[in-house]
């Protein structure tokens, strides 16, 4: 007896609610952009400079007392958040303190950090500082540039690759799906105000990689079916391809999610934001390869009658398949 996520034969019409699903995606992307513009992102020190100090203590944390102690130092805007994690011991109380970049300093001066540490030791003598990180405004500016470069670079490289291997319509469809995934993830981070740092950029790129992986598998089958059923309408070919690959799509998403959920719950709070982003991205990426990428291809149409030309142009590398 085998575990089957989907029956061996499916005939789901993925375009039945095309207007609804595609519309929902468009609304979600627009909402994400609005969220990003209005609420902004909770940038970590990687992107806006400043210092974070992780504190750990056997005593329970009194955020108010911490704040009072640090406010006395007049360091501008500070944020103190207590960190909760199921993997912590009972007497392990962790807080994350963020201090903004001090004017005129490239990186937090030692005195600032020392002053904060001493002030906190007054409040709680058992406090320790397992991690102190400080990024100057110069570096954070460069990191923003590098991040934008990385995400756009990845998108462009993928467009080019898909365009070489498939028709340009597929390339546009794939990128629409990717932009959809990235935008919605950023929107979620904006809505939940989860710390957005360099690791999240890595997560975004991973989402891009995963989502394109999924989309390519569907496209690959579509390409095969387009050759096989030369007269079948495009919408049916797309639907057939999605149905044929549905089992694989869900299998892979499930194994990936199983691994990610283990990491999300057991991997500790340090990388939780990062893992959360990827987990979310796998869900969105799976959705978008079924409901976004194909719809765009359908809207653009694919030229199927190549009788007029000797060789299909633009897919010089399309015949590598065994």
């Amino acid at each position: 007896m085998r575990l089957r996520l989907v029956p061996s034969e499916t005939n789901i019409n993925f375009f039945r609610f095309a207007g609804l699903t595609f519309g929902a995606s468009v609304v979600a992307v627009i909402a994400s952009i609005i969220l990003f513009l209005t609420m902004g992102l909770n940038f970590g020190i990687d992107f806006r400079g400043g210092t974070t100090i992780r504190t750990e203590s056997v005593q329970s944390i009194d955020v108010g007392a911490y704040r009072e102690a640090i406010d006395a130092l007049d360091l501008g805007d500070i944020s103190i958040t207590e960190v909760f994690d199921p993997t912590f011991r009972d007497d392990q109380n962790v807080a994350q303190i963020r201090i903004e970049a001090q004017p005129g300093e490239e990186s937090a001066s030692t005195e600032t950090i020392l002053a904060v540490e001493q002030a906190l030791q007054q409040v709680d003598p058992s406090i320790t500082f397992p991690a102190v990180e400080s990024v100057g405004p110069k570096v954070s500016g460069e990191l923003i540039q590098a991040a934008i470069l990385a995400v756009t670079g990845a998108l462009v490289a993928i467009v080019i690759y898909i365009w070489l291997r498939f028709e340009w319509q597929f390339s546009v469809g794939a990128v629409a799906a990717l932009i959809h995934d990235v935008a919605i993830t950023i929107g979620l981070f904006s809505l939940l105000q989860i710390k957005f740092d360099l690791a999240i950029i890595a997560a975004l790129l991973t989402i891009v990689g995963y989502s394109i992986n999924d989309t390519v598998v569907v496209f690959d089958r579509t390409r095969e079916n387009l050759r096989k059923y030369k007269t079948m309408p495009l919408v049916e070919v797309l639907n057939l391809s999605a149905n044929e690959t549905l089992s694989r799509t869900l299998m892979t998403s499930t194994t990936t999610l199983l691994a990610l959920l283990a990491l999300l719950f057991l991997g500790g709070d340090v990388i939780r934001g990062f893992v959360f982003a990827i987990t979310w991205g796998v869900v969105v990426g799976t959705y978008s390869s079924i409901y976004v990428a194909k719809n765009v291809v359908l809207m653009l149409g694919v030229k199927r009658d190549w009788s007029g030309t000797d060789k299909p142009k633009g897919n010089k590398f399309a015949d590598i398949d065994a």
Binding site: A146, A147, L149, A150, G153, A154, A157, I158, Y161, I162, R165, L198, I201, A202, L205, T206, V208, G209, Y210, I212, N213, D214, V216, V217, F219, D220, R221, I320, D321, A322
Partner: peptide
């Protein structure tokens, strides 16, 4: 095979970009 190759090359592209920029 063709699906495996296509799907993994695209992921490899993003990994190399991450390596170069990160």
């Amino acid at each position: 095979l063709s699906a495996i190759i296509d799907a993994n090359i695209t992921t490899l592209i993003t990994a190399s970009i991450l390596y170069a920029v990160g």
